[in-house]
Write a protein that binds this DNA or RNA. Sequence first.
DNA 1: GAACGCAGCGCTGCATACAGAGTCGGATGC
DNA 2: GCATCCGACTCTGTATGCAGCGCTGCGTTC
Lengths: 215, 215
Amino acid sequence: MTRADDVHRELRAALLSGTFPYGQRLVEEQLAERFNTSRTPVREALRRLEGDGHVVRDRSGGVRPNAPRVTATRELYAVRTVLEDLAVRTADPEKLEPLQEEWLELRSERDESPDFVYADESFHEAIAHASGNSATERYLHDINERIRVIRIHDFTTVDRIVTTIEEHLEILDALRSGKTDAGAALMRVHIERSAEVVERRVGELLTRMFEEERP
Amino acid sequence: MTRADDVHRELRAALLSGTFPYGQRLVEEQLAERFNTSRTPVREALRRLEGDGHVVRDRSGGVRPNAPRVTATRELYAVRTVLEDLAVRTADPEKLEPLQEEWLELRSERDESPDFVYADESFHEAIAHASGNSATERYLHDINERIRVIRIHDFTTVDRIVTTIEEHLEILDALRSGKTDAGAALMRVHIERSAEVVERRVGELLTRMFEEERP
DNA sequence: GAACGCAGCGCTGCATACAGAGTCGGATGC
DNA sequence: GCATCCGACTCTGTATGCAGCGCTGCGTTC
């Protein structure tokens, strides 16, 4: 674990939690001081975050947090839908047993943690993994990284969490009984529902964010 | 355009053309000398290439070219199929007119350049662009980058080039007359054919590469 | 003869110095 | 009062030095 790894991980977490306003430039030297290191590891972390799409550079070389946009989110959901469809259709049902157990437990626990988005991501990535296609897995992971900053606000109500858990279990039921088409259809509806909720909230969310930014 | 950009671009081209044997370690200092610069831009370029999937790091920090594998190619083709399907179905037919003109010309020219793979890529990326979904475009571009090293060997025969041109024109015909489903079906067949040809050749190709590598 | 240890070295990770591009604000001219 | 120019400052891009890790190969020991 190098310092560049640390900075990358911590800075990403900070970006996702909204620590840095979208307009504000991320200055290498300031970040170096903040993370008690030199500019070199910070530079490296920033380049990686740029590749991850979490920051963008302006033409003068400055780096800023990448503000999520409604259009981009919609586009990512369109891609996600077809990739999840592919994953579901090629997933090996036998590999889904531990996942089912895990989510049955989650249902009984009625976990309301604000980190639910991570649990949700791991559900979808587990299905991609069960498909045995590492490319699908990688691209879905990338999409998750990009929409996480929005999706965090998808699970702020208990209602959404409960619905999500039920839908996950329905999908697993279908897949484990070999009803692939049914599972794929359920998955499609599941993702469309999430897209709707997210889209409804992202507008006001961004408005609020940009208002906070201007003192 | 910084030196890191230059090194990134040139090194990527060198990797795709097979300049560096797959087993051989890419040493920062040697690359710096080769590109007439210092280690810093080389480091940055290597980090980006790592993110692009063109190089991999071993646990001791060394960087090596990422060898294409049959499995990985097959997985990438599976993802490509569903993304091209999405692109075709959402492409704006009106935006395809210049593309059709371009490929009608290509047909009459019977271009047999070894760079045909780039023309082919630009066809598929143009359709993704016409879909107006930049995420689709980005992921398809990424896939093209990853399979190019293999696909270069897809177009070594005139036959494959002629077939490809005809199929491209059929797809455009269907899409421009509003027959979306037909276009999508044609595209699917088109890509499956390419996958078959590639898969048939990739085995022997890799064998040859690894033989050359051992003196 | 095999296994272990140690020294040498090659390479990466990190820190820091320097140069040049970009930016902002103040002074100056109209 | 407004536009413009100039200079100081800020920040990035690049070069380079240094420390430490890990590998290799040789010698030693059992």
